[in-house]
Design a protein around this nucleic acid. Structure first.
Length: 221
DNA sequence: CGCCAGGGCCTCA
DNA sequence: TGAGGCCATGGC
């Protein structure tokens, strides 16, 4: 089995820097390689935090729509969003789906007065491990690898045993250095979206198909 | 049309 | 503690 470092390197060689986390620039949401190690402004930090909740089980294109609605309505600030009625907030983030739940989640996060630690984030209603880690990693530059549905699917197909969130995260922590956590996660999303898809995986042209331990589990096309 | 998308909570056994 | 239901829009 190819090791995690090699997978990360192979994906980087193939796809290049992914420019995470995507940010609003000139009224559109863009990826830029400079973002990954950028010193973020507080406005950008806020934007990523909101996006981390909006993207729960949701196509990123829909999240972009919601973020741009908030942006156009000058609602992408903590003060504005806090004073806005939950129903109004829900209507603005409608394109992201689950808008009632997400409005509640955003309110809960914004009203939290506790320090931003993993434990405190997890105690907020609607913040689970992935959302907490996304905030810690991409907003606060903490050495935390984000495990998402793509990560689980890809690792499963590569032949790694089915692991719980923290176990899979620990495996990556053990095999990569922290400065690669952001990029590796972004690269896995790229691979998951374009190659290791749930429906019609493109195994024949997959950059890491060869070392895949269970290629039989793919529908080869 | 059905399936899926950068989850997380609740219920019930 | 694990499976299953629920939340919802928009792209393909």
């Amino acid at each position: 089995m190819q090791n995690i470092q090699q997978i990360c390197q192979t994906l980087y060689d193939k796809f290049g820097p992914q420019g995470w986390w995507p940010l609003i620039r000139n009224s559109s949401v863009v990826h830029n390689a400079r973002f990954t190690n950028k010193k973020l402004t507080s406005k950008e930090q806020f934007e990523i935090t909101i996006g981390a909740i909006l993207t729960q089980n949701t196509a990123w294109t829909n999240v972009e729509k919601a973020l741009l609605v908030l942006h156009k309505n000058k609602a992408l600030t903590k003060a504005t969003m806090q004073k806005m009625p939950k129903e109004k907030l829900a209507s603005l983030i409608r394109p992201a789906g689950y808008y009632n739940q997400k409005a509640r989640k955003l309110k809960g996060l914004l009203n939290s007065k506790k320090a931003v630690t993993r434990e405190n984030l997890l105690n907020i209603w609607g913040i689970g491990p992935e959302t907490a880690d996304s905030i810690l990693c991409y907003v606060y530059n903490q050495p935390v690898f984000v495990v998402d549905a793509y990560t689980k699917r890809i690792f499963s197909k590569l032949g790694f045993a089915e692991l719980e969130y923290e176990q899979l995260q620990g495996l990556v922590h053990k095999n990569l250095t922290p400065e690669n956590y952001k990029e590796f996660h972004a690269l896995l999303v790229k691979l998951g979206k374009e190659y290791c898809k749930k429906n019609k995986p493109k195994c024949s042209v997959c950059p890491i198909n060869k070392p895949c331990a269970h290629p039989i589990r793919y529908n080869h096309t």
